[in-house]
Design a protein around this nucleic acid. Structure first.
Lengths: 192, 192
DNA sequence: AGCAAGTGCTTCGAATCTGAACGTTCGACT
DNA sequence: AGTCGAACGTTCAGATTCGAAGCACTTGCT
């Protein structure tokens, strides 16, 4: 797969191509395997697991807003609405109007949900060990995280795409900021 | 997200967790963005693009068998059948019985398909540059590929999803061995 | 040859996911 | 107050996905 179709200026070099494909394929395969394990162990979807994990392991209160969840789980809003419905029906979460913002909906994990999460966790970790971390020894995992996290921040900070124009093509290079949180890259120009 | 639910022996360390999440999230976000670009540029799905790319860029003859495609595209067989149908209907590929094996079906890219691929490629590369490779400088891409490709090979080489037992008979788990240390997860048995 | 097991692909039913359109609510600015 | 644009979730229709079951062919064994 060469990706060099006479657009020489744009072409990716060999290492980049391999990194791209390896990244996508590893993630795809891993997700597939993880999904099998989750289904057998606790009848959970990957998405459902991730929602439960965010609520049950990350949040002290065990609750988050829909939008926060959707952003973290990397999903469409409507998809999360669907899953929240399913999970509420199953009794794993509850939905209630957000206290401060009447538009918002707060999702909270239930005891049943926590039990479900606990049931799935050990096997999940085991799959990761066997599939992903068997070949990542020493500090490889740390290196991997160090490479990918800036990319993740960069992607999350980008303009919402809906804008028809790509403004200044200057180098956004904000690589110098390590564990940066979400720097809200607002469009500084006062267009509109 | 700590993943340390009183199953101490199984827990992943911090770096591993971060690597896992970064990997999955980067891949998910990237795929999402790529899919947007592909749709706008050439009305293609990520899967369709990948099929066309494999056929048009990798294969000298422009054709592959269904199973080969399914394995490379990381897809279920039935899913590929569906997509092959869609793409044939659109005139991007053709299906014909394989010459040597009457069970097999050979998929071949058409001129129309090549044109479609060519239309999508430049923007695709551009998205990758902007999103993924902006933060991967120097030989980062090479490092990333070097980390992920062994993992990919490892996953692909694993037992093909035999339902019943996960591991051989005998000791059910080397993971629960407390004295086994954390690191140095050796693959049991000679892995070529 | 004959037969059992395996492979390659498709069909089928059901679940899941997505973007677009919608109805509300919030915020800023008149 | 009144208005406009943005943000939050939901609904809707349609497309995509998967696993299980099924059919046709191949391979291996006797």
């Amino acid at each position: 797969m060469s990706f060099t179709p006479a657009y020489s200026g744009l072409a990716l070099d060999e290492a980049e191509l391999r990194a791209y494909f390896a990244l996508m394929d590893v993630a795809g395969l891993l997700r597939h395997k993880v999904e099998q394990q989750l289904r057998e162990a606790a009848d959970l979807t990957y998405v459902q697991f991730k929602v439960l994990a965010r609520l049950g392991l990350d949040s002290p209160t065990g609750s988050l807003r829909m939008t926060e969840l959707a952003d973290e789980v990397v999903y469409s809003r409507s998809g999360l609405t669907y899953q929240a419905g399913q999970m509420e029906k199953a009794g794993w979460v509850e939905r209630s109007p957000s206290p401060d913002d009447d538009r918002g909906v707060t999702v909270t994990i239930t005891e049943v949900g926590r039990e479900r999460l606990t049931r799935a966790l050990p096997g999940h970790v085991e799959v990761l060990r066997e599939l992903l971390f068997t070949t990542l020894t020493g500090n490889d995992a740390g290196t991997l995280a160090a490479l990918l996290e800036p990319a993740l921040d960069h992607m999350r900070a980008l303009p919402p795409r809906s804008a028809s124009s790509r403004r200044r093509s200057g180098a956004p290079s904000s690589v110098s900021d390590p564990s940066a949180g979400h720097r809200s890259v607002e469009a500084p120009g006062g267009e509109h």
